[in-house]
Design a protein around this nucleic acid. Structure first.
Length: 887
RNA sequence: GGGAGCUUAGCUCAGCUGGUUCAGAGCAUCUGCCUUACAAGCAGAGGGUCACUGGUUCGAACCCAGUAGUUCCCACCA
C-alpha cells in the first residue's frame, strides 16, 4: 500500500487522461447507426475568459454528454465561439487606442484586419480553458460564428427573410448606445432605478407675464424642446391651449399643445416635448406635427443644433444648464426622484433614444410556432416555471432591430445607388442583376429606370444574435446543404444548457429559426442554470472582483473536485451561492474514493482461495447488489428529470455511506486473514460499477482508478464503459429493510458503548429475545464483527445489568457489565413507552374515527392497522423490560 | 404599473397524487477517537411554531384566501 499516495493528486491524472481521450478520439463523433445525442455549446464570446458561469454551465453539459456516451449513444458536443460584435469591437477599439490608433482614422478593412488578429490571438483562450475542466467536446467540430460558412448562412437567411417580407428598413426611434456608437435591440437595454432629480422649470408664455412650469429629469434636452404639452382636461392650463411658450436659454417659441398622453397628477401636469430624444415625445411630435431638433451627437455630446454647450458631454451639460437656469430664475425647484434609466447591456453606457435609419425583423408571425411548441411541451424547459416568462415575452414581442453601426460582424447585404434606392443581394454582381430586374418592372409600370452604376453596400453589420440564432443549424451546415448527413443525423439536438438571462436573446430566437428553416425544433430540452453568486448573494462579476479564478480553483481542488462542488447545490434554475468550501467537499469526496481504491487494492495481494476469513459475506453482497439496483433506478430517474444535484448527492451517499462505511467495513478481512477470492471479485465489481456512475461527474479520478484497479485492454476506458441501467423487477426491498435492522442495531450498540464509555477494544456480549439475531440470521456475523461482540445468545428475559433495545419487532439486551445505571435505564424505557403509547393513541383515534375509515383509501387504513399491532407489540416488550428492571 | 416565483434546521436545498412517527439530506456545529484505506478521516449526538392569519378536509409543510418579506421578468409616464 505504501507506494500509493494517501491523497489523490489530481494534477498528475488530469492532463494525462485528457490527452489520452483526445488521442483515442473518444470525443469525436460522426454519424453512424447508433442513436445520436447532441448538444451544441452556447458559444462563449471570443472576448471572454472562463468565468464561474461557464464552469457551471459546461460541467452540466459534460455530465450529460458523458452519460449519453456511456449509454451507447453517439454523443456529439459541438463547441465554438461567438464573434460578439459589439463587445469585441469595443475591445479592439480600446486596444488600438492604447497604441495611439483611433478607429476613425482607419479604413474598414484596416480595422477588420486588427480585429481578426485580435480574435486569432485571444479568441481561443476560453476553449482551451474548458479542456482543463474536462469538457469532452468534439473539438474537430469547433465553429466560430463569423467563419465563412456561418457568415454565408447569416447572409442568405437575411436575404430570404427580406424576400419573405419579414425584414424592413426604416427611420425609427431606437436605443442608441453612445459608447458603442450603435443602435441596440430592446433586449440589450437594462433598466435600473437611479436616484436623480426632477427639475421644475418655468417657460414664459409669449406676449404675457404668465409662466408655465414643467417637470423634467433631463434639463439638457430643453434645448431641443419643440412644444409644451398639457392634458386637454386640465383646467389649470385650458386658457393656454394654442398659445406659445418661450424655451429658456434658446428663446425658441414653441406651441402649447393638449394631449391625453399627459398625466395631470404627475409633476406640474405640464410636459416639455423633445421629439428627438424621447420615444413618447416622438409620438407626440408625429401627432402634432412638431419640429424635431436633435441636440445630441451620436457620441452623446451637444450638437450644433443645441446652440449652447456645443461639443460638451450631456451629463456635464445637465449640471451646467441647471446652474444657468437657476441663474436666470427659470428653475423653480428641484426634488429628489427615482427614475428608470436604460443602460447598454454591453458597454453599460446610458442609452439615448434616438431617431435613426435601421433594419428590423418583424417578429409577430415568425414567433407563433415558437410559442406554440413550447406551450405544448414539444420543447421542454427545466425548470418549467420559465414557461410563463417565455409565453409572456412571446405574446408581446417587438420587432427586432438587427442592424448595428459597427464593422465587426456580418455586413448587411443591401446595395444602394447614388439616389439612395437599394436592393438586397449577396454580392454586388447580384445587386446589379437585381437592379436590372427592378428596372424592367419599373419601366413596364411606366416609371423611370434607376441608376445602378455606382453601388455601395450598406455600412452596417448585423446584430450578433442574428448569427447565434442559427447556431444549432449552421454548425451542421444546414443552410447551404439542408440535406447533408450531419444535419439530418444530429438535428434536432437533444439538450440545451444555458442561463435564463438569454432565454429571449437566444433560446427563443433559436426556436424561431428552427421552425422557420427546418420546420422542426432545434432541441428537445432546455436546462436553465442559475446564476453563480458570491456568499453575500451578489452576482459574480469582473468589476466587483468577487469571482474566483476558475483555473486556480481547478489547480487547488482538482477539476473533479470543482465539478462536484458546483453541482452539489445547484438544482436547475436555482442560483448557486458559491463558496470554496463546496469545492473542498468535492475534493474530499475524491479523496474518499481514492482511499477506497487503496483499500481494495491492498486486498488484491491478500486475496485467494485459501481465505482464512471464516465469515460468510454472501448476505452482505446480496444486500449491496440490491442497493446498487435501487439507487441506479433512482439516479436514472433523476437524470430524466434533470435533477443532477440530487443524482450526484444520491451517488455521494451510496459511495460514502453504503459502500465505504458499511460494505467495505463488513467485508474487510480481520487482521492476519486473507480475503476470499470471490469476495474480492465482487468487491471490485461493485467498485467499478460505482466508478462508472461517478464518471460523468468526476471523469479524471474515475479513469485513473479504472486503469489501476485492474489491468485493461487497449481500448478499455471508463469514458466508454457501460452506464448502469436497472429495472424495478431486480429490486427486492425486503433485503434492504432487513439489512436496515442490522445497521440500526449496530448503531444502537455503538451509541450505548459511547454513552457508557465502553471502549471499542473491550468486547461485550449481547442477548436477544427470539427470533432476533439468531445464528440463522445470515447477517448475524456482521454485528459481531462491527461491534466487537464476545457472545450472542438467546434469552427469555432481560439479563441483569443489561441495556435493552427494541429494533423493528425484535428485542435486544446489551450486557454492560454492571455499568448500566438501573434508574437511568428505567427512565429511558419509560420515555420510550410513553412515546409509543401516545403514538398508539393517535393511531387508535384515527381508526376510531368513522369518517377516516370510510373516506381514506383502503391502503392507508390498512397501514394504520399495521401501525396499531406493531405499536401494541412494542408496548408489550417495553412493559416486560420495565417489570424486569423493577424486580 | 403588470406578471411570475419563492419563504422548511445556522447555511444550501429535497419533500412527487394531501395519508407511514413526515418533518428529511448535505454542509456547518457539539462530543469522543491518530481503530492497521482515508484527521481532506472514523464513531456518536444535538438542531425546525414548515413566514404569518384564517379556511377546506376524517387528515394540511402540501389545497384555497388574505397578510408580510423576498427574488426575477416585462413595461416609454416626464
Amino acid at each position: 500500500m505504501s507506494e500509493i499516495s494517501k491523497l489523490y493528486n489530481p494534477s498528475l491524472a488530469e492532463d494525462k487522461w485528457y490527452r489520452k481521450w483526445m488521442e483515442k478520439g473518444f470525443f469525436r463523433s460522426v454519424p453512424d447507426k447508433r442513436e445520436p445525442y447532441t448538444i451544441v455549446i452556447p458559444p462563449p464570446n471570443v472576448t471572454g475568459v472562463l468565468h464561474m458561469g461557464h464552469m457551471l454551465n459546461n460541467t452540466i453539459q459534460d455530465v450529460l454528454i458523458r452519460r449519453a456516451r456511456m449509454m451507447g449513444k453517439n454523443a456529439c458536443w459541438v463547441p465554438g465561439t461567438d464573434h460578439a460584435s459589439i463587445a469585441t469591437e469595443a475591445r479592439v477599439v480600446a486596444m488600438l487606442k492604447e497604441k495611439g490608433i483611433h478607429k476613425k482614422d482607419l479604413t474598414r478593412d484596416a480595422f477588420l484586419k486588427y480585429a481578426w488578429e485580435w480574435k486569432e490571438k485571444y479568441g481561443g483562450i476560453i476553449l482551451e480553458q474548458l479542456k482543463k475542466l474536462g469538457a469532452s467536446c468534439d473539438w474537430d467540430r469547433t465553429r466560430f460564428t463569423m467563419e465563412d460558412d456561418l457568415s454565408d448562412a447569416v447572409i442568405s437567411v437575411f436575404i430570404d427573410l427580406y424576400k419573405k417580407g419579414h425584414i424592413y428598413r426604416g427611420m425609427r426611434m431606437v436605443n442608441w448606445d453612445p459608447a458603442g456608437m450603435t443602435a441596440v435591440s430592446d433586449e440589450e437595454v437594462i433598466y435600473k432605478e437611479i436616484d436623480s432629480q426632477l427639475y421644475h422649470v418655468s417657460y414664459q408664455i409669449e406676449g404675457s407675464d404668465e409662466f408655465i412650469t414643467i417637470a423634467t429629469t433631463r434639463p439638457e434636452t430643453i434645448l431641443g424642446d419643440t412644444a409644451i404639452c398639457v392634458n386637454p382636461a386640465d383646467e389649470r392650463y385650458k386658457h393656454l391651449h394654442g398659445k406659445k411658450a418661450i424655451v429658456p436659454l434658446v428663446n425658441r417659441s414653441v406651441p402649447v399643445i393638449a394631449d391625453d398622453y399627459v398625466t395631470m397628477e404627475f409633476g406640474t401636469g405640464a410636459l416639455k416635448v423633445t421629439p428627438a430624444h424621447d420615444a413618447n415625445d416622438y409620438q407626440l411630435g408625429l401627432r402634432h406635427k412638431l419640429q424635431i431638433v436633435d441636440v445630441l451627437t451620436p457620441e452623446g455630446k451637444m450638437s450644433a443644433a443645441a446652440q449652447f454647450y456645443v461639443g460638451e458631454d450631456r451629463f456635464e451639460v445637465r449640471k451646467k444648464i441647471v446652474k444657468d437656469l437657476e441663474a436666470s430664475g427659470a428653475l423653480v425647484k428641484k426634488q429628489p426622484y427615482k427614475s428608470n434609466v436604460g443602460f447598454s447591456e454591453r458597454t453599460n453606457a446610458v442609452i439615448e433614444p434616438r431617431m435613426s435609419m435601421q433594419w428590423f425583423l418583424k417578429m409577430e408571425q415568425l414567433s407563433k410556432p415558437a410559442l406554440q411548441h413550447v406551450m405544448n411541451d414539444d420543447i421542454r424547459l427545466f425548470p418549467d416555471k420559465f414557461k410563463n416568462t417565455y409565453r409572456h415575452w412571446m405574446e408581446n414581442v417587438h420587432d427586432w432591430c438587427i442592424s448595428r453601426q459597427l464593422w465587426w460582424g456580418q455586413r448587411i447585404p443591401a446595395w444602394y445607388n447614388s439616389t439612395g434606392d437599394f436592393v438586397v443581394a449577396k454580392t454586388e454582381k447580384d445587386a446589379i442583376t437585381a437592379f436590372e430586374a427592378l428596372n424592367k418592372q419599373r419601366v413596364s409600370n411606366g416609371e423611370s429606370a434607376l441608376l445602378y452604376d455606382q453601388l455601395t453596400q450598406d455600412e452596417d453589420v448585423l446584430d450578433t444574435w442574428f448569427s447565434s440564432w442559427l447556431w444549432p443549424i449552421s454548425v451542421f451546415d444546414g443552410f447551404k446543404n439542408p440535406e447533408n448527413k450531419d444535419i439530418n443525423y444530429y438535428y434536432p439536438t437533444n439538450d440545451l444548457v444555458t442561463a435564463p438571462e438569454i432565454l429571449f436573446f437566444w433560446v427563443a430566437r433559436m426556436i424561431i429559426a428552427g421552425y422557420e428553416y427546418r420546420g422542426e425544433k432545434p432541441f428537445t430540452n432546455v436546462y436553465l442554470t442559475g446564476i453563480v453568486r458570491d456568499k453575500q448573494g451578489r452576482k459574480m462579476s469582473k468589476s466587483l472582483g468577487n469571482s474566483p479564478e476558475p483555473l486556480e480553483l481547478i489547480s487547488k481542488y482538482g477539476a473533479d473536485g470543482v465539478r462536484v462542488g458546483m453541482l452539489l447545490t445547484s438544482p436547475a434554475g436555482n442560483d448557486l451561492p458559491f463558496d470554496d468550501t463546496l469545492c473542498e467537499q468535492g475534493r474530499n469526496f475524491g479523496n474518499k474514493i481514492w482511499n477506497a481504491f487503496r483499500l481494495i487494492k491492498s486486498w488484491q495481494e491478500r486475496s485467494g482461495k485459501d481465505s482464512t476469513d471464516q465469515n460468510d459475506y454472501s448476505a452482505t453482497i446480496n444486500w449491496f447488489e440490491n442497493r446498487l439496483a435501487e439507487e441506479t433506478l433512482l439516479i436514472n430517474d433523476l437524470f430524466t428529470k434533470y435533477r443532477l444535484s440530487e443524482a450526484l448527492m444520491t451517488l455521494y451517499k451510496l459511495v460514502w455511506d453504503d459502500f465505504c462505511s458499511w460494505y467495505l467495513e463488513i467485508v474487510k478481512p480481520p487482521l492476519g486473514t486473507n480475503m476470499h477470492e470471490k469476495v474480492y471479485e465482487k468487491t471490485t465489481e461493485f467498485f467499478e460499477y460505482l466508478l462508472r456512475m461517478l464518471h460523468p461527474f468526476m471523469p479524471f479520478i474515475t479513469e485513473e482508478i479504472w486503469h489501476n484497479i485492474n489491468t485493461r485492454t487497449e481500448n478499455d476506458y471508463i469514458i466508454i464503459a457501460k452506464w448502469p441501467e436497472c429495472s424495478q423487477e431486480s429490486i427486492d426491498s425486503t433485503i434492504t429493510e432487513n439489512f436496515r435492522e442490522i445497521t440500526d442495531l449496530v448503531t444502537g450498540i455503538r451509541n450505548i458503548r459511547k454513552q457508557k464509555n465502553i471502549p471499542n477494544r473491550q468486547p461485550i456480549s449481547v442477548s436477544y429475545s427470539s427470533p432476533g439475531l439468531s445464528a440463522h440470521n445470515p447477517l448475524h456475523n456482521i454485528v459481531i464483527k462491527l461491534c466487537n461482540l464476545s457472545s450472542v445468545s438467546a434469552v427469555d428475559s432481560a439479563p441483569a445489568g443489561s441495556v435493552s433495545m427494541v429494533i423493528g419487532k425484535h428485542e435486544y439486551f446489551i450486557h454492560t457489565e454492571g455499568l448500566a445505571d438501573k434508574s437511568q435505564e428505567k427512565i429511558r424505557i419509560k420515555q420510550e413507552l410513553e412515546y409509543t403509547l401516545s403514538f398508539l393513541e393517535s393511531v387508535m383515534k384515527k381508526l376510531g374515527n368513522e369518517r377516516f375509515v370510510s373516506n381514506a383509501k383502503p391502503e392507508v387504513v390498512e397501514l394504520e392497522q399495521k401501525k396499531k399491532t406493531d405499536a401494541e407489540e412494542k408496548i408489550r416488550m417495553l412493559k416486560n423490560q420495565l417489570e424486569m428492571l423493577n424486580s
